[in-house]
Design a protein around this nucleic acid. Sequence first.
DNA 1: TTTCGTGCAAAACCTTTGCAAAGTG
DNA 2: CACTTTGCAAAGGTTTTGCACGAAA
Lengths: 145, 145
Amino acid sequence: MSDHCCASEGAIAGALEKIRANGGRVTEPRRAMLAILGKEHGPFSAEELHKKIGGAGCDVVTVYRSLQAMEEIGVVRRCDFGDGTYRYEFNDGEHHHHHIICRVCRSVETLDVCVADGLERMARQKGYQKVTHTLEIFGVCPKCA
Amino acid sequence: MSDHCCASEGAIAGALEKIRANGGRVTEPRRAMLAILGKEHGPFSAEELHKKIGGAGCDVVTVYRSLQAMEEIGVVRRCDFGDGTYRYEFNDGEHHHHHIICRVCRSVETLDVCVADGLERMARQKGYQKVTHTLEIFGVCPKCA
DNA sequence: TTTCGTGCAAAACCTTTGCAAAGTG
DNA sequence: CACTTTGCAAAGGTTTTGCACGAAA
């Protein structure tokens, strides 16, 4: 309950259940990926995730494919930090947050605030369905300034 | 004044001036790119922009390089619509807007609202400098739903 | 004239795809 | 057993880089 930095075991179990509910299979690579995404909450690129899975791991292609599959059903969320590589993080239901990325050292800070609900509502009123959004903040952090 | 869909001549002139002020050169390709970005306000990919410049145009590589240079000094802004291609639009000073992108037909609607000012302020309070942000809304548009 | 931009070609990079074999429910 | 996922290899597509030449201030 209310563990700020990590997804609970239950959340990961729920994610696995969601995979099954959508006709997907729960495999070893997916378990491993979700374990890391739930614990370190990153966001990580496919490459980074692949390294973290390590020896027992799977092919990088599998990481790409699994991330894509899990993103489509909302189990993970994709972030773009503007450096040509997509990163993924565990999608903790409605409680989403955003990041401040330092343009110089690439450090990432998490902001537990979301201000885009109004915009999402606006989009729904315009007739859009399955509305989501991406929001990232960029700047030069105190250490690099 | 207050032309909703286009940047004024003055805005483009200002952009050119900003390029010079940052030690850049105002070249034919850059004029052409800004003319289109100011008029159609896109956002366009480098490839699209290159096609729009047309016969008199320049190499695609030049478009890439110019867009990058102009983004660094804030003359244009880069958007990520999640399909692996970056798009650029004219950066009209403080008056920025956001987009709703249809996940199916890839149509783009403009939202003249920005809700991230609070987040930017928060970032500045944390000691970040040169704060910017990206925010895009995704959904399935009425026609595709 | 000094510095920056451009063209061309090639490279780098991340991500996707095809197909047969293996795993999941 | 039907269907999904994986591995391997290869392709795809966008963006970047090197270098000599040309252009801007």
